[in-house]
Write a protein that binds this DNA or RNA. Structure first.
Lengths: 347, 347
DNA sequence: CTGAAAGCGCTTACAG
DNA sequence: CTGAAAGCGCTTACAG
């Protein structure tokens, strides 16, 4: 007792039975005699014995925990309501299956190093692609993974919406309302989004582009003001300020995240710019605040909670070696029309 | 390779050196020859060797992770913005110290069982008291812990604000504005808050009481309408509805959580009841949404982020065996006056 | 029904 | 500078 934890050896010594028998008493009760078992449980209880979970997990080669990779700084990852919703979805599944959820921030700036040290049965990441460093670490460690908003492939189980179509739809909505001078608030390729090819950002730009093409415009048009931001309220506010000062004088702001759109609405309001009378604002994600901001935000609903839930369910199946016909899941999106989008004023 | 992970034994076999030497190459480079070390690292790299973190942690008897206990159902714990802010604060410290953050939901409804299985170096809980089941499990396992919003004592390191004073101040503010028919939205004693004595709820009620006494009222007065809710938007909405139907016709709602207060404001708005003209609403916590709800909420600011940060810093010190003069930390609160509190209409 | 022994993959005090 | 061995605290196939 005195300062040391009680181990299986203490119970063995105290009862006179072997470690095997003690272990069976807890994990395989029917294998041993009733009396034996009762004695063991009593002694264990008296001594305050709690089997060491790490030793147990180590022996069983498992962790009973799912890891969620947090990109960049905390404020920019779980600080983002959409990411937070995903996390809640994952947490729900963990709770239902008796797992814990391990949040894994970068270790000394390095997410790869964090993955090397992660004590989890599987990982969920955002925007992952097969050729990334972290993915090779996961492969070397034989840890299953699933990506949300990543690059689907046979080797990269994933949960995505059809970003291109969703982006197309919302841009079309904006164009249909009559807007022709538009600010696009895009997202930085951060720790996750690599420079090249089709991450979420590229797919959405493609969608915007397609809608613009239908009215004879493109992303390079002089009436398009393109900005990139980190996905947080603060950068959204700064982007809004730059929009105010831009020479394009957009009549609509199309943001790739509600967080950015909401920051714009708040900033415009503070500056006395009316939404949607002076400028319309639309977003992407449909976080819960979007329904309550004033005016309520027109946006694309992509259920973060569901995505987290589905991703962790897929991950659980992979962990338990279940066969699956499809590991690349498409989840649904939906255009949500609210008051932040209006028609541009006549000039 | 083929399907099996590469272990230290593979490197030993391949290089001809002993496991000890391989281990030193990684953890104690100066103890072995430069050439030896380089050979080992090269082979390790070629074979894709990544030291197994669980084996390493097990051997070192540590976890490199902090646990955060989630009361009740997920939706009611991290679903609560205040709790979420605390979590972000903890996560920040974890990131800075190279730890992960393990979210621990109840295991089959039991938080004690979850604590028995928790693979963490220390735990942070909400509203913990020394005599609770989970606390005895932590003691048996010799796992350090810190409580936020719990019952401070020599045996229960904690981070709290002065709830009684804070509650007194906001109730006084309401009374000073002239209100005399008041609905109080209290919190349920849930998984955490035990029935008896001075949890957070009791301390706040004491504060309310004290302010009421100054104008000759008390919690039992017929002009006080007392309700208990779980701390989530949904229950807040239901409470608002009950207030609408109550015969007391309160002119002010004093809620113990912003989540409840905001739900009330939204519900009243939907019902055509004007805040603060028809009824004033004040809250507790100052979550970020409170500044943006319409009208902005008068509340008590208690910085969840800071509490999480301070609690995890204290926990880290305990884990690392540092001496501390005080383990019961008082953090500051502040009355935040906004537009949701007005004077009652003349009758 | 029970026990001795090997194993999970590392670390490290000790000896050489 | 390097290695053999014990240890972290469990589980479980095997033997009796």
């Amino acid at each position: 007792m005195d300062g040391k934890r009680v181990t299986i050896n203490d119970i063995a010594r105290e009862t006179g039975y072997s470690k095997s028998t003690i272990s069976f008493a807890f994990n395989n009760p029917q294998r041993i005699g009733k009396e034996t078992r009762e004695l063991i449980l009593k002694v264990a209880d008296d001594l305050g014995y709690i089997p060491d979970p790490m030793a147990r997990n180590f022996s069983l080669q498992r962790y009973r925990s799912i890891g969620f990779l947090l990109p960049q700084k905390t404020e920019f990852s779980i600080g983002n309501p959409y990411v937070y919703e995903i996390m809640v979805g994952i947490c729900q599944v963990c709770q239902d299956t008796g797992y814990t959820l391990t949040l894994i921030p970068p270790l000394n700036e390095s997410l790869s190093d964090a993955v090397k040290n992660a004590t989890v049965d599987g990982l969920i990441g955002l925007g992952m692609k097969v050729d990334m460093d972290i993915v090779s670490v996961m492969k070397a460690r034989k840890i299953p993974y699933v990506s949300i908003d990543g690059m689907p492939s046979a080797d990269m189980p994933s949960v995505n919406i059809d970003d291109e179509t969703a982006a197309y739809e919302i841009m079309k909505e904006v164009l249909d309302a009559g807007h022709r001078r538009i600010a696009i608030l895009s997202l930085c390729r951060d720790a996750y989004f690599s420079e090249n090819e089709d991450g979420v950002v590229r797919r959405r730009l493609k969608g915007y582009s397609k809608a613009l093409a239908e009215v004879g415009m493109n992303l390079g048009s002089s009436d398009i003001f393109m900005l990139e931001s980190e996905c947080n309220f603060d950068e959204g506010r700064m982007a809004a300020e730059r929009i105010c000062q831009s020479s394009v004088h957009p009549t609509a702001v199309v943001a790739m995240a509600d967080v950015l759109a909401i920051a714009c609405i708040r900033h415009f309001k503070k500056k006395g710019i009316k939404v949607p009378q002076d400028v319309s604002v639309v977003g992407f994600d449909n976080i819960s605040e979007s329904a309550y901001v004033n005016p309520p935000l027109t946006t694309v609903s992509q259920p973060g909670f569901d995505k987290g839930k589905v991703a962790s369910e897929v991950l659980m199946k992979i962990i338990h070696g279940e066969e699956m016909n499809e590991v690349n899941i498409k989840s649904g999106h939906r255009l949500v029309k609210r008051e932040s989008l209006g028609s541009p004023a006549r000039e």
